[in-house]
Design a protein around this nucleic acid. Structure first.
Length: 570
RNA sequence: GCGCCUGUAGCUCAGCUGGAUAGAGUAACUGGCUUCGAACCAGUUGGUCGGGAGUUCGAAUCUCUCCAGGCGCGCCA
């Protein structure tokens, strides 16, 4: 249990005691200003109102009951009835010295099985900036669950099964030496699409090939597989460049569910949930309305007998809940698919495809906009390739390093540029609340000033430099003695890491972790200005080294949860 | 038409279940490197939180309404 939760529990108990009620909430939070302490409890005012008591007096009574000596230097009642808690240096000292340097947080003692669906690129299409957000947000969330001790199952829902693949197979089989063209997937896809749109005979051959593919025709399947291999390889190269944890083993494509789809329909049919509407088989739910205000169907089988996205997703829910025994299934998908997920979650629950405890969650993220504030149009050829973005980031980082630190070797400069460039791109995205739409802007995404990953990498490099210069081991034990305002602030911040990580697993907003790390780095920078480390002596020096060490470890671990590597020098 | 999201400093964004004088970065200005890395630190300037009404001891946060923008709404994924 983290400090905030401990205080919440303690004060809530005291409130309940006084009120004779069971569920009183202390509402403990970080204080906005240091004059109001480190934590404040806001729950007294609401309780006083219910009990029709003077809030100030009630707060005094609560305070008299509280036993916070272990944590607090003092507790003050302020304003209409705030309880302000000033954490003691002794407590911070004791906690930091007791902290396990390899863990830094309290891991879960109730591990859950979490299935997370993210990235989801498409077969035979090059990844573009539109894929960036889901991929890096999903990856940060995955790393965090995993590190906290949950059983995390990544599923990359590769789009590999649909009518467009008939067109690709046909185009490929009719081209001499077409395999070489696979190296440029985008060109190949567009060429096939053009023929499909303009050549009716080609289009009908393509449709025939879809049927052949889906019925397992050997030649078609073989051609299709070659697409998959090339596409996956392309994605893996990008994942590696972006430091994304997804591997080929995490690919669970749409085609994985192809033999389960008929069973899903049969199941729904047996339960009497299907209605035939204009030849299509649908589930009608009263909660959803269409343009005319009538019930909106979730179409699960087309009038020609074909299956849809919704069908695959229903099969996916059943598989993840029943076979993988997920406690939570997280879908990191664009916000525009919100209604789709509401529908299939509702159908899945109605049809009993999910077990009672399984929570289905759409972790949506905002749409990417153009510079003009309007949606970034995906007209053919108009999207920015992910690989181009990454390379531009690395180039910009390189010229920064060249300017700031020209003495480094060429190899070092290149390695540093890759970390700085990639981390700047990832951080720019992760640091925003994922719900908001965001404007695609080279300068913002590749900025190295202020609230950016390089700022934190710089803080880390400075600390490394201290230990390197003094020839001290950054992993040794240094006894911390918290004393003085800068040191206290840093110590408290360090202990709050676990609070932030705990919160991240509830609602899955990585920007909360970004904000914390940014504040930690900032707090360290202030400490660094006023508290010389190597020039101090004795136990003060040991203590400051300890604070530096914990800051470095926390930054490294926190950034690693975001999928960002640290550098010893930059 | 219905539903979802967004509107906070010139710009880019935080602001957690309602809490104390609304916070950062950036830009502008000022000061700080013979002193552990200046990709830094300290400070100044900058906001009727889209408008209005309501609930409340207390509202950027909750409710209603209006305005502006974005997205979604039957056989694509």
């Amino acid at each position: 249990m983290n400090l905030k939760q401990t205080l919440e529990q303690n004060i809530s108990l005291a409130l309940s005691d006084l009120a004779g009620e069971t569920a009183c909430q202390a509402l403990v939070n970080h204080s906005k200003s240091s004059q109001f302490g480190d934590y404040q409890a806001n729950g007294v005012m609401a309780l006083a109102k219910r009990l029709k008591q003077n809030p100030r007096e009630l707060a005094e009574q609560v305070n008299a009951k509280l036993e916070l000596d272990e944590f607090a230097e003092r507790v003050e009642i302020a304003g209409p009835g705030f309880i302000n808690i000033f954490i003691s240096n002794e407590f911070l000292t004791q906690q930091l010295n007791a902290l396990d340097k390899s863990q830094l947080v309290d891991k879960t003692n109730a591990p859950q099985t979490i299935v997370i669906d993210y990235s989801s690129p498409n077969l035979a299409k090059e990844m573009h900036v539109g894929h960036l957000r889901g991929t890096i947000i999903g990856d940060a969330i995955s790393r965090t669950f995993e590190w906290m001790g949950h059983k995390l199952i990544r599923q990359n829902h590769f789009g590999d099964w649909g009518t467009q693949f008939g067109m690709l197979i046909t185009h490929m089989s009719e081209q001499d030496g077409a395999t070489t063209e696979l190296s440029n997937l985008e060109v190949f896809y567009r060429a096939a699409k053009q023929r499909f749109d303009n050549d009716t005979e080609f289009a009908s051959r393509a449709r025939e090939n879809v049927v052949k593919l889906q019925s397992g025709d050997k030649q078609c399947v073989q051609l299709w597989k070659s697409f998959i291999d090339v596409s996956i390889q392309h994605c893996q190269e990008l994942y590696q460049k972006l430091n994304i944890t997804l591997t080929e083993n995490d690919v669970v494509p749409e085609s994985f569910y192809k033999n389960k789809l008929a069973g899903v329909i049969e199941n729904l049919d047996n339960q009497g949930l299907l209605t035939l509407s204009d030849g299509a088989r649908c589930v009608f739910l009263d909660d959803f309305k269409n343009k005319e205000g009538e019930a909106l169907p979730t179409i699960v089988q087309k009038s020609d007998g074909g299956y849809l996205y919704a069908t695959t997703d229903l099969a996916g829910i059943e598989y993840r809940c029943q076979d993988l025994h997920a406690d939570r299934v997280l879908y990191v998908v664009d916000a525009r698919q919100g209604l789709h997920f509401q529908q299939i979650f509702a159908v899945a629950k109605l049809a009993g495809l999910t077990n009672e405890e399984c929570s289905l969650e759409h972790l949506s993220y905002g749409t990417m906009m153009g510079q003009d504030g309007k949606p970034f149009k995906t007209r053919s050829g108009d999207t920015i390739k992910l690989i181009d973005l990454i390379e531009e980031g690395i180039e910009r980082a390189y010229s920064q390093i060249e300017a700031k630190n020209p003495d480094l070797s060429e190899l070092e400069k290149q390695e540093i540029a890759e970390v700085v460039g990639v981390s700047a791109i990832k951080y720019a995205d992760l640091a925003k609340n994922r719900n908001s739409d965001y404007v695609f802007d080279w300068d913002i995404m590749l900025s190295f000033e202020g609230n950016t990953a390089p700022y934190m990498l710089y803080a880390y490099a400075r600390i490394s430099s201290i230990f390197r210069r003094a020839e001290l081991d950054i992993n040794a034990d240094y006894k911390v003695i918290v004393d003085g305002s800068e040191e206290k602030e840093l110590a408290l911040k360090l202990l709050q890491f676990t609070e932030v990580v705990d919160a991240l697993l509830v609602e899955c907003f990585p920007n909360q972790l970004c904000l914390y790390l940014y504040e930690l780095a900032g707090t360290f920078m202030s400490f660094y200005e006023v508290c010389p480390v190597l020039k101090s002596e004795g136990e003060i020096k040991q203590s400051r080294l300890g604070l530096c060490q914990f800051t470095a470890l926390t930054l490294k671990q926190g950034l690693s949860l975001l999928g960002i590597n640290t550098l010893d020098r930059m």
